[in-house]
Design a protein around this nucleic acid. Structure first.
Lengths: 143, 143
DNA sequence: TAGTATATGCAATTAGATTGCATTTGTCAA
DNA sequence: TTGACAAATGCAATCTAATTGCATATACTA
Protein backbone atom coordinates (compact mmCIF):
# COMPACT_ATOMS: atom_id res chain seq x y z
CA UNK A 1 0.00 0.00 0.00
CA UNK A 2 1.24 3.41 -0.92
CA UNK A 3 1.71 6.05 1.75
CA UNK A 4 -1.25 8.35 1.80
CA UNK A 5 0.77 11.39 2.83
CA UNK A 6 4.20 12.47 1.74
CA UNK A 7 6.80 14.50 3.55
CA UNK A 8 5.66 17.43 1.46
CA UNK A 9 2.08 17.10 2.69
CA UNK A 10 3.26 17.11 6.29
CA UNK A 11 5.22 20.31 5.69
CA UNK A 12 2.14 21.98 4.30
CA UNK A 13 0.11 20.72 7.22
CA UNK A 14 2.58 22.32 9.63
CA UNK A 15 2.82 25.57 7.69
CA UNK A 16 -0.98 25.87 7.72
CA UNK A 17 -0.95 26.07 11.51
CA UNK A 18 2.13 28.35 11.60
CA UNK A 19 4.60 25.74 12.82
CA UNK A 20 8.12 25.35 11.50
CA UNK A 21 8.88 22.13 9.68
CA UNK A 22 11.49 20.16 11.53
CA UNK A 23 12.54 16.54 10.95
CA UNK A 24 11.02 15.46 14.26
CA UNK A 25 7.67 17.10 13.57
CA UNK A 26 7.46 15.70 10.07
CA UNK A 27 8.40 12.26 11.35
CA UNK A 28 5.76 12.34 14.06
CA UNK A 29 3.03 13.43 11.67
CA UNK A 30 4.09 10.73 9.22
CA UNK A 31 3.99 8.08 11.93
CA UNK A 32 0.51 9.07 13.02
CA UNK A 33 -0.79 9.24 9.48
CA UNK A 34 0.65 5.90 8.47
CA UNK A 35 -0.20 3.84 11.50
CA UNK A 36 -3.62 2.38 12.01
CA UNK A 37 -3.63 2.38 15.77
CA UNK A 38 -3.20 5.28 18.17
CA UNK A 39 0.45 5.70 19.18
CA UNK A 40 1.96 6.65 22.50
CA UNK A 41 5.09 8.77 22.91
CA UNK A 42 7.28 5.68 23.36
CA UNK A 43 6.13 4.32 19.99
CA UNK A 44 6.78 7.66 18.33
CA UNK A 45 10.31 7.69 19.72
CA UNK A 46 10.92 4.20 18.31
CA UNK A 47 9.52 5.25 14.93
CA UNK A 48 11.81 8.28 14.78
CA UNK A 49 14.82 6.20 15.80
CA UNK A 50 14.08 3.72 13.00
CA UNK A 51 13.99 6.62 10.56
CA UNK A 52 17.32 7.84 11.96
CA UNK A 53 15.72 11.07 13.15
CA UNK A 54 17.58 12.00 16.33
CA UNK A 55 15.35 13.60 18.95
CA UNK A 56 15.23 13.92 22.67
CA UNK A 57 12.21 12.42 24.43
CA UNK A 58 11.30 15.83 25.83
CA UNK A 59 11.02 17.18 22.33
CA UNK A 60 8.58 14.45 21.37
CA UNK A 61 6.37 15.34 24.32
CA UNK A 62 6.57 18.99 23.34
CA UNK A 63 5.74 18.30 19.71
CA UNK A 64 2.78 16.15 20.66
CA UNK A 65 1.48 18.93 22.90
CA UNK A 66 1.77 21.58 20.24
CA UNK A 67 0.10 19.34 17.64
CA UNK A 68 -2.73 18.84 20.14
CA UNK A 69 -3.04 22.60 20.65
CA UNK A 70 -3.17 23.16 16.93
CA UNK A 71 -5.77 20.47 16.54
CA UNK A 72 -3.76 18.26 14.17
CA UNK A 73 -3.98 15.25 16.48
CA UNK A 74 -6.37 14.02 19.17
CA UNK A 75 -5.60 12.38 22.51
CA UNK A 76 -6.85 8.90 23.31
CA UNK A 77 -6.84 7.17 26.67
CA UNK A 78 -7.27 3.42 26.72
CA UNK A 79 -6.96 2.86 30.44
CA UNK A 80 -3.22 2.35 30.30
CA UNK A 81 -2.12 5.31 32.38
CA UNK A 82 -0.68 7.12 29.40
CA UNK A 83 -1.88 8.98 26.35
CA UNK A 84 -2.04 7.76 22.81
CA UNK A 85 -2.55 10.02 19.83
CA UNK A 86 -4.29 9.81 16.51
CA UNK A 87 -4.09 12.04 13.47
CA UNK A 88 -7.20 14.17 13.12
CA UNK A 89 -7.81 12.75 9.64
CA UNK A 90 -8.47 9.33 11.12
CA UNK A 91 -10.31 10.23 14.28
CA UNK A 92 -13.79 9.56 12.97
CA UNK A 93 -14.08 6.25 14.74
CA UNK A 94 -13.87 4.78 18.23
CA UNK A 95 -11.93 1.94 19.80
CA UNK A 96 -12.49 -1.46 21.28
CA UNK A 97 -9.75 -2.78 23.55
CA UNK A 98 -9.50 -6.46 24.39
CA UNK A 99 -8.83 -6.86 28.10
CA UNK A 100 -6.98 -10.13 27.50
CA UNK A 101 -4.67 -9.49 24.55
CA UNK A 102 -4.81 -5.66 24.55
CA UNK A 103 -5.58 -5.60 20.86
CA UNK A 104 -7.11 -2.35 19.66
CA UNK A 105 -9.91 -2.56 17.10
CA UNK A 106 -11.62 0.30 15.35
CA UNK A 107 -15.34 0.77 15.79
CA UNK A 108 -17.01 2.79 13.07
CA UNK A 109 -20.49 3.98 12.28
CA UNK A 110 -21.38 5.02 15.81
CA UNK A 111 -23.73 7.87 15.28
CA UNK A 112 -22.96 9.60 18.50
CA UNK A 113 -23.33 12.88 16.64
CA UNK A 114 -27.11 12.91 16.92
CA UNK A 115 -26.91 12.14 20.61
CA UNK A 116 -24.29 14.87 20.95
CA UNK A 117 -26.53 17.50 19.38
CA UNK A 118 -29.40 16.59 21.69
CA UNK A 119 -27.18 16.91 24.75
CA UNK A 120 -25.82 20.28 23.60
CA UNK A 121 -29.31 21.67 23.17
CA UNK A 122 -30.67 20.24 26.40
CA UNK A 123 -27.73 21.27 28.60
CA UNK A 124 -26.71 24.53 26.95
CA UNK A 125 -23.14 23.35 26.63
CA UNK A 126 -20.81 23.34 23.63
CA UNK A 127 -19.34 19.93 22.89
CA UNK A 128 -16.05 20.11 21.00
CA UNK A 129 -15.10 16.46 21.03
CA UNK A 130 -15.92 13.21 22.73
CA UNK A 131 -14.12 10.02 23.49
CA UNK A 132 -15.78 6.63 23.35
CA UNK A 133 -14.02 3.38 24.11
CA UNK A 134 -15.34 -0.12 24.52
CA UNK A 135 -13.62 -2.67 26.74
CA UNK A 136 -14.16 -6.42 26.65
CA UNK A 137 -13.04 -9.66 25.05
CA UNK A 138 -12.21 -9.93 21.36
CA UNK A 139 -13.27 -12.79 19.14
CA UNK A 140 -9.93 -14.59 19.33
CA UNK A 141 -9.76 -14.50 23.10
CA UNK A 142 -13.21 -15.99 23.62
CA UNK A 143 -12.01 -19.58 23.16
CA UNK B 1 -29.35 14.96 52.61
CA UNK B 2 -28.94 11.69 54.37
CA UNK B 3 -26.05 9.38 53.54
CA UNK B 4 -27.25 6.68 51.24
CA UNK B 5 -24.82 4.10 52.58
CA UNK B 6 -23.68 3.48 56.11
CA UNK B 7 -20.44 2.02 57.39
CA UNK B 8 -22.34 -1.22 57.88
CA UNK B 9 -23.35 -1.33 54.22
CA UNK B 10 -19.74 -0.87 53.16
CA UNK B 11 -18.69 -3.77 55.36
CA UNK B 12 -21.27 -5.99 53.75
CA UNK B 13 -20.16 -4.84 50.33
CA UNK B 14 -16.59 -5.84 51.15
CA UNK B 15 -17.57 -9.14 52.69
CA UNK B 16 -19.56 -10.03 49.59
CA UNK B 17 -16.40 -9.93 47.50
CA UNK B 18 -14.29 -11.69 50.17
CA UNK B 19 -12.34 -8.64 51.30
CA UNK B 20 -11.57 -7.81 54.89
CA UNK B 21 -13.15 -4.66 56.27
CA UNK B 22 -10.47 -2.19 57.21
CA UNK B 23 -10.92 1.48 58.10
CA UNK B 24 -9.20 2.58 54.90
CA UNK B 25 -11.35 0.40 52.67
CA UNK B 26 -14.55 1.46 54.35
CA UNK B 27 -13.49 5.11 54.13
CA UNK B 28 -12.71 4.84 50.44
CA UNK B 29 -16.01 3.14 49.64
CA UNK B 30 -17.84 5.78 51.67
CA UNK B 31 -16.07 8.58 49.85
CA UNK B 32 -16.93 7.15 46.45
CA UNK B 33 -20.53 6.51 47.40
CA UNK B 34 -21.07 9.96 48.89
CA UNK B 35 -19.36 12.10 46.32
CA UNK B 36 -21.05 13.06 43.11
CA UNK B 37 -17.96 13.35 40.99
CA UNK B 38 -15.34 10.75 40.19
CA UNK B 39 -12.43 10.96 42.66
CA UNK B 40 -8.73 10.49 42.09
CA UNK B 41 -6.36 8.92 44.61
CA UNK B 42 -5.23 12.33 45.90
CA UNK B 43 -8.85 13.24 46.75
CA UNK B 44 -9.35 9.93 48.49
CA UNK B 45 -6.28 10.55 50.62
CA UNK B 46 -7.62 13.97 51.62
CA UNK B 47 -11.01 12.46 52.45
CA UNK B 48 -9.41 9.83 54.68
CA UNK B 49 -7.25 12.40 56.41
CA UNK B 50 -10.32 14.51 57.18
CA UNK B 51 -11.96 11.46 58.70
CA UNK B 52 -8.79 10.88 60.76
CA UNK B 53 -8.21 7.56 59.04
CA UNK B 54 -4.45 7.16 58.88
CA UNK B 55 -3.27 5.45 55.67
CA UNK B 56 -0.24 5.40 53.53
CA UNK B 57 -0.66 6.54 49.92
CA UNK B 58 0.52 3.18 48.65
CA UNK B 59 -2.31 1.51 50.51
CA UNK B 60 -4.85 3.76 48.82
CA UNK B 61 -3.50 2.77 45.42
CA UNK B 62 -3.63 -0.86 46.45
CA UNK B 63 -7.18 -0.61 47.74
CA UNK B 64 -8.35 1.13 44.60
CA UNK B 65 -6.80 -1.63 42.49
CA UNK B 66 -8.44 -4.40 44.45
CA UNK B 67 -11.82 -2.66 44.36
CA UNK B 68 -11.41 -2.39 40.57
CA UNK B 69 -10.58 -6.09 40.34
CA UNK B 70 -13.62 -6.97 42.39
CA UNK B 71 -15.77 -4.73 40.25
CA UNK B 72 -16.95 -2.46 43.05
CA UNK B 73 -15.64 0.65 41.33
CA UNK B 74 -14.93 1.72 37.75
CA UNK B 75 -12.02 3.72 36.36
CA UNK B 76 -12.59 7.02 34.60
CA UNK B 77 -10.09 9.00 32.55
CA UNK B 78 -10.85 12.63 31.88
CA UNK B 79 -7.71 13.51 29.98
CA UNK B 80 -5.83 14.55 33.10
CA UNK B 81 -3.07 11.97 33.04
CA UNK B 82 -4.44 10.16 36.05
CA UNK B 83 -7.34 7.92 36.95
CA UNK B 84 -10.51 8.83 38.72
CA UNK B 85 -12.89 6.29 40.19
CA UNK B 86 -16.61 5.98 40.61
CA UNK B 87 -18.65 3.57 42.66
CA UNK B 88 -20.34 0.98 40.50
CA UNK B 89 -23.75 2.01 41.85
CA UNK B 90 -23.41 5.40 40.23
CA UNK B 91 -21.69 4.49 36.98
CA UNK B 92 -24.80 4.53 34.84
CA UNK B 93 -24.02 7.91 33.34
CA UNK B 94 -21.27 9.67 31.41
CA UNK B 95 -19.33 12.88 31.90
CA UNK B 96 -18.93 16.26 30.34
CA UNK B 97 -15.73 18.12 31.17
CA UNK B 98 -15.45 21.87 30.63
CA UNK B 99 -12.09 22.62 29.05
CA UNK B 100 -12.03 26.08 30.63
CA UNK B 101 -13.08 25.56 34.26
CA UNK B 102 -12.59 21.77 34.43
CA UNK B 103 -16.04 21.32 35.90
CA UNK B 104 -17.38 17.79 35.58
CA UNK B 105 -21.07 17.39 34.73
CA UNK B 106 -23.04 14.19 34.55
CA UNK B 107 -24.67 13.22 31.28
CA UNK B 108 -27.53 10.76 31.63
CA UNK B 109 -29.93 9.00 29.32
CA UNK B 110 -27.39 8.13 26.66
CA UNK B 111 -28.71 4.92 25.31
CA UNK B 112 -25.39 3.58 24.20
CA UNK B 113 -26.64 0.16 25.19
CA UNK B 114 -28.51 -0.37 21.95
CA UNK B 115 -25.48 0.69 19.96
CA UNK B 116 -23.36 -1.60 22.10
CA UNK B 117 -25.51 -4.64 21.35
CA UNK B 118 -25.33 -3.96 17.64
CA UNK B 119 -21.55 -3.73 17.74
CA UNK B 120 -21.25 -6.93 19.76
CA UNK B 121 -23.34 -8.85 17.26
CA UNK B 122 -21.66 -7.38 14.19
CA UNK B 123 -18.07 -7.81 15.45
CA UNK B 124 -18.40 -11.01 17.45
CA UNK B 125 -16.85 -9.35 20.48
CA UNK B 126 -18.00 -9.23 24.10
CA UNK B 127 -18.28 -5.72 25.47
CA UNK B 128 -17.96 -5.55 29.24
CA UNK B 129 -17.94 -1.82 29.71
CA UNK B 130 -17.48 1.39 27.82
CA UNK B 131 -16.32 4.86 28.62
CA UNK B 132 -17.85 7.94 27.07
CA UNK B 133 -16.73 11.46 27.83
CA UNK B 134 -17.65 14.76 26.26
CA UNK B 135 -15.26 17.69 26.21
CA UNK B 136 -16.17 21.31 25.52
CA UNK B 137 -17.33 24.54 27.11
CA UNK B 138 -19.93 24.66 29.86
CA UNK B 139 -22.78 27.16 30.04
CA UNK B 140 -20.99 29.45 32.53
CA UNK B 141 -17.78 29.66 30.53
CA UNK B 142 -19.50 30.66 27.29
CA UNK B 143 -19.74 34.34 28.25
C1' DT C 1 -8.60 -15.58 72.23
C1' DA C 2 -4.90 -17.45 69.55
C1' DG C 3 -3.35 -18.50 64.87
C1' DT C 4 -3.07 -17.34 60.21
C1' DA C 5 -3.92 -15.34 56.00
C1' DT C 6 -4.39 -10.89 54.59
C1' DA C 7 -3.60 -5.93 54.68
C1' DT C 8 -0.65 -2.14 55.62
C1' DG C 9 3.60 0.86 56.16
C1' DC C 10 7.93 2.21 54.68
C1' DA C 11 11.52 2.84 51.42
C1' DA C 12 12.89 2.52 46.98
C1' DT C 13 11.84 2.58 42.18
C1' DT C 14 9.54 3.17 37.67
C1' DA C 15 7.08 5.49 33.99
C1' DG C 16 4.95 9.37 32.01
C1' DA C 17 5.23 14.00 31.63
C1' DT C 18 6.88 18.93 32.52
C1' DT C 19 10.10 22.97 33.25
C1' DG C 20 14.15 26.18 32.84
C1' DC C 21 17.82 27.51 30.46
C1' DA C 22 21.47 27.42 27.11
C1' DT C 23 22.18 26.28 22.30
C1' DT C 24 20.77 25.27 17.68
C1' DT C 25 17.92 25.63 13.64
C1' DG C 26 14.24 27.05 10.30
C1' DT C 27 12.41 30.84 7.92
C1' DC C 28 11.84 35.32 6.04
C1' DA C 29 13.49 39.78 4.57
C1' DA C 30 17.05 42.17 2.46
C1' DT D 1 22.18 33.73 -0.90
C1' DT D 2 22.85 35.27 3.55
C1' DG D 3 22.13 37.14 8.10
C1' DA D 4 19.01 37.99 11.92
C1' DC D 5 15.75 36.49 15.03
C1' DA D 6 12.05 34.01 16.66
C1' DA D 7 11.12 29.45 17.39
C1' DA D 8 12.57 24.69 18.31
C1' DT D 9 15.59 21.48 20.55
C1' DG D 10 18.79 19.20 23.99
C1' DC D 11 20.09 18.42 28.53
C1' DA D 12 19.46 18.15 33.36
C1' DA D 13 16.49 18.38 36.89
C1' DT D 14 12.01 17.79 38.69
C1' DC D 15 7.15 16.25 39.39
C1' DT D 16 3.27 13.31 39.79
C1' DA D 17 1.08 8.94 39.38
C1' DA D 18 1.71 4.45 40.23
C1' DT D 19 4.18 -0.02 41.50
C1' DT D 20 7.17 -3.39 44.09
C1' DG D 21 9.51 -5.94 47.94
C1' DC D 22 9.72 -6.88 52.39
C1' DA D 23 8.88 -6.51 57.29
C1' DT D 24 5.16 -5.59 60.49
C1' DA D 25 0.42 -5.14 61.96
C1' DT D 26 -4.36 -6.35 61.74
C1' DA D 27 -8.95 -8.59 60.76
C1' DC D 28 -11.33 -12.69 60.94
C1' DT D 29 -12.12 -17.71 61.76
C1' DA D 30 -12.06 -21.61 64.50
Amino acid sequence: MKDLKTKHDCKKELRDVFLKSTPARIGILEALEKTNKPLDVASLIIYLKEKSIKVDNVTVFRIVNILLEKGLITPIQLGEGKFRYEHISKSDHHHFICEKCNKIEDISNCNIDILEKNIQKKKGIIIKRHSLEFFGICQNCQN
